[in-house]
Design a protein around this nucleic acid. Sequence first.
DNA 1: GCCGTTTTCGGCCCGACTGTTTTCAGTCG
Length: 587
Amino acid sequence: MQFTLKRKIKTMDNREIAQKFYKVADILEVLGQNQFRVNAYRRAAQTIESLPEDINELYKQNKLTEIPGIGAGLKEKIEELITSAHSKEIDDLEKKVPIGVLELLSIEGLGPKKVKFLNSKLHINSINDLIKLIKSHRLLKFKGWGEKSEINILQGVEQYKKFSERLPLGIALPIAEELAEKIKNIPGVKRVEICGSIRRRRETIGDLDLLAISAHPEKTINSFVHLSVIKQVKASGPTKANVVLKQGIEADLRVIKPESFGAAMNYFTGSKAHNIHIRKLGQARNLKINEYGVFKKEKSGKFKFLTGAEEINVFKSVGLSYIPPEIREDEGEIELAKQNKLPRLIEDKDIKGDLQCHSEASDGADSIEELVAYAQKVMGYKYLAITDHTPSVGVTHGLNPKRVLEQIKKIDRLNKKLRNFRILKGMEVDIKADGQLDLPDEILKKLDVVIAAIHTGFKQPTEIMTERIIKAIRNPYVKILAHPTGRIINKRMPYNVDIEKVILEAKKLNKILELNAYWNRLDLNDVNLKLVKKIGLKNVINTDAHARVELKNMRYGVMTARRGWVEAKDVINAWPMERLLKFLKKT
DNA sequence: GCCGTTTTCGGCCCGACTGTTTTCAGTCG
């Protein structure tokens, strides 16, 4: 008789292979190797990351080289990674550049050349080394480094340190969802829910909180701490474990009794301020509310269990209607829930189209036809605006007037063939340093939707930047201001802009400020969205997709919109096409 | 490292901005 030894063959998925290639690109760059080779790795990583198919399947079907940008060399490396999770050549490269040196690249203003100089000439191997160097002012002796460099680096380090503890929602949520799936597959587990700040859809996440119902709590915890995705077990008891995942983020799993599950969800979703407010309402009614349930204080002084299985009953027990997790921040939601006057927050299914995406004509990965097919079939949209870049955003291969006209003709042709769907002709026009637009009006006026956006000159002072943006949206053909504050989560602060002034001006001009749904932007953020709503300005939620699968990032936009109390009626791409077109013509 | 209707070798999207320069290198998108 033959025993099948259940040996886990470690393989790598699309995301892990993409991460590996990004890392290789960084290493090669710091080593000063051929830039085109570096680009090849980075391009391949991007392609793999946004590949709709599982790369393991393509490998099995021997179709790896059909992926654009994958030739014989990368095919071989992918095969090694898939079959053994290692590649000799990559392992050797990783030995040449310490991880601390690669970390230096995350500091804004430090690119491969400077990092290489710091590492090879001054033996800087980590951020700590770098700080010491700056404080000694030794750097000033070298050509090309001045006082401003010192200040910028220190600021960059500070920013990096401040942000590096929390993961962006767009990274943390897929990790949490995968982990929840794995827990669901543990025998005896009946239900798993992701709670914590992820459930509130905060833009960055500190750790993962998961709750489960299980027939065998202790066995479940034991299976959990032995999952392959776990790097370190920090604590593990009969109903609860605290672990560190391979991705570096901490995760807590608690096994809860069914009769307490709703109360636990409420408790572990937070926010803290919201929970405290709810518990206070309970106290006033002689109720004790905790993670096990709602309890009534009896004359004897003992507490009697009232409810706990369903979350909504916790709210009901203190006279509130159900409050969606995204707005549980104690910022007025409890008062409105008392009067049953909460906003009806926008949902994924309300979105009818996307008004910003990029085709291969500029820096996108896919053709207009591919984007449209995906928007129609996968996303279920009624319209999609193609908004490629303009020439001044150099590397994007932006469209000059001649190419814009060609694209317009092409879209007109495609539209004739489409049923129940329309491609909108658009451009994401660069706003130059002086507020001028990168395309002439006679071109802009031929488009359905013109989006203006800043891509350079981020360091202008507030007044100049604000005037620059306002000048751009005053152009009669500009309808939308893309990623209005320019922040990149964990990487770049918003540029100096008086956003309130811009919002007020936009209201006056009847222009729209975008909520960019890409998870590292989420710009406008929840705070600004509330301001927009207060002023009565409409929104648009755009993915800014550079590949068709990125149209799926819409969900992060909707999540952030919900945190900003946004309703479907406020969002122009939740409107039917006719109404949207009418609106775009009028503004 | 990829790619091919100018190519199997020799290209490979580049413009704006910053901080350091005194004419430009590095970074960013």
